[in-house]
């Protein structure tokens, strides 16, 4: 095992054991990982050269679907809540996706934003269904039929989240390396040629879009359960902007960047926002500018650079699979 793959493995192990040593970090880590999933969804689309300013839509749709399910059945079951959340996100993703994959660049970004704002105002205005700006409570669900104590449940939720993140990261990585994943990446460089290969660029982008909706869906349902409440804030444009920000910060070229970015982001926000609450958006903006102008590959890119420099043996094959 090379150093390059060894360190990420250590990081995963560290995240896995940290809550045993410092129990207060458990909820924080759960939230950070749950947020990493929609960030991964944003990264999938960035590989196609498109940025969505509305992906909180699928995050929120899933969270609300999970909350509704719990309410209808008077308390829910964790597995079915996540499953229903993902299904709802995919269904909405299909409808919205068929429309937005016709557009590129700023239109793609803003139309996604428009859809998320529509859902946001529906949540606020139709309060007799959605609880308005107070949102809906999400009672602690059973896990595979068992009622659990709070502490036990949080531990289960944390490891479930971690496991889902690992699976999602692996599957997304494989997707991006696969033939169809590579086709999706050509939408960024030469969509015309893709059409001249007999492939529908819109169709390929739609596949990527649905995958990103699934990732948002998993994250949204987990977040709803972890926080115990869903509010329209789940769908707010600031949330979507956060996903994009973390994707750029972590490194949009890489799958691991989503989670590294989310962990850094949540940690900084939790411990620093007390001092910088009023200028939090400004901090985000400045960091975003800095990353784009000076470190466009993000944290993951910096890591790859450091690794390249540390390598003592001459390179026989330097292709980084993540890039």
């Amino acid at each position: 095992m090379s150093l390059r793959t060894f360190l990420p493995a250590v990081l995963v192990a560290l995240v896995a054991v940290l809550p045993m040593m410092a129990p207060t970090t458990q909820v924080l880590l759960t939230l950070a990982l749950a947020k990493g999933l929609p960030v991964l969804g944003v990264i999938v689309l960035l590989h196609a050269g498109q940025v969505s300013f509305g992906h909180a839509l699928f995050f929120g749709v899933s969270a609300y679907a999970a909350a509704f399910l719990a309410r209808v059945y008077g308390g829910g079951e964790l597995i079915s809540m996540v499953a229903v959340g993902v299904l709802a996100a995919v269904a909405v993703g299909l409808v919205v996706g068929i429309f937005v994959v016709r557009y590129r660049h700023i239109f793609f970004g803003m139309l996604n934003l428009a859809f998320s704002m529509i859902f946001f105002s529906v949540l606020e205005k139709f309060y007799y269904l959605t609880g308005g700006s107070d949102g809906l409570p999400v009672p602690r669900p059973t896990v595979a039929g068992f009622d659990m104590e709070r502490a036990g449940f949080e531990t289960v939720l944390f490891y479930l989240t971690l496991a889902l993140c690992l699976v999602a990261a692996w599957a997304t990585h494989r997707f991006l390396c696969s033939p169809i994943g590579n086709m999706m990446r050509t939408i960024k460089t030469n969509e015309l040629r893709l059409e001249y290969l007999g492939v529908s660029a819109r169709g390929v982008l739609l596949v990527g879009y649905l995958i990103s909706a699934v990732l948002c869906g998993i994250g949204g349902a987990l977040m709803a359960v972890a926080q115990g409440v869903v509010t329209p804030e789940y769908v707010w444009w600031v949330r979507s902007g956060e996903f994009v920000f973390i994707a750029i910060l972590g490194g949009s070229g890489s799958v691991s960047g989503a989670f590294v970015g989310a962990l850094i982001y949540e940690a900084v926000r939790t411990y620093a926002s007390a001092f910088a609450n009023d200028i939090w958006k400004m901090v985000l903006g400045v960091v975003l500018l800095g990353v784009i102008l000076y470190a466009p590959a993000g944290v993951a890119g910096l890591y790859a650079q450091v690794m390249d420099r540390c390598r003592t043996r001459p390179a026989n094959k330097t292709v980084d699979e993540d890039q």
């Binding site: 599957a171 494989r174 997707f175 390396c177 696969s178 033939p179 169809i180 994943g181 590579n182 086709m183 050509t186 893709l194 290969l197 007999g198 492939v199 596949v207």
Partner: peptide
């Protein structure tokens, strides 16, 4: 890779979880 993408398109091999280099 340019040719592999073309070949995958020609044979409609989407293979979402198979690395393109192994088609």
């Amino acid at each position: 890779e340019n040719l592999l993408i073309a070949a995958a398109a020609q044979s409609r091999r989407w293979a979402p979880f198979v690395p393109m280099q192994r088609i």
